[in-house]
């Protein structure tokens, strides 16, 4: 699978994929996109890199760490980081939901779990944009999707 053509294409696609997924993530509230789609896209781009350069590429070239045996790989290596990613994603999503309750408690109103709100703001260069609190939750979704998918792909791939 690791042909020159695939490697070359991957080199081109990789940055494009990250940028597009970032754009998807940001514009999700108003245009096609969102945390889930962005997450799957990011994961598939990394998976493509796995396909082209082998499973150790992230560990080896990105983090510059020594690659060890398979079990070690699952328990300590980059998979550990993926696990941290989806775990913290879940935490972010829940914390974002709880923030609504806390805010309600502080302002003496009853606001249910995961209530979202939004503001409009004018930012230089970007102009008049919407800032939605839901993006915190969406960030959690993104992290969970990326972390979980990459965990599965790299673990199954290592098999």
């Amino acid at each position: 699978m690791t042909t020159v053509i695939l490697r070359t294409i991957t080199r081109l696609v990789l940055p494009l994929g990250f940028v597009v997924s970032f754009a998807f993530f940001l514009q999700g509230h108003n245009l096609p996109g969102g945390g889930f789609i962005a997450g799957v896209l990011t994961a598939s781009v990394v998976a493509l890199a796995y396909l082209a350069y082998g499973l150790d590429v992230v560990e080896d070239d990105v983090f510059g760490r020594e690659v060890e045996a398979a079990v070690e790989h699952v328990q300590h290596g980059v998979v550990r980081d993926y696990q941290t990613l989806y775990a913290s994603g879940l935490a972010v999503a829940v914390a974002g939901g709880l923030a609504a309750i806390v805010y309600g408690y502080l302002t003496d109103t009853t606001i249910p779990f995961m209530t979202q709100t939004f503001r409009y703001a004018t930012v230089p260069l970007f102009g008049h944009i919407e800032l939605a609190s839901a993006i915190v939750f969406d960030l959690g979704v993104y992290a969970v999707v990326v972390g979980a998918l990459l965990t599965i792909i790299s673990v199954v791939g290592a098999e």
């Binding site: 108003n30 996109g33 979202q116 939004f118 919407e130 839901a134």
Partner: peptide, 13 residues
């Protein structure tokens, strides 16, 4: 919800 993408607003809000 202040969003124009209904699908996404349903998902996150």
């Amino acid at each position: 919800a202040g969003g124009h993408n209904i699908v996404n607003v349903i998902l996150v809000d």
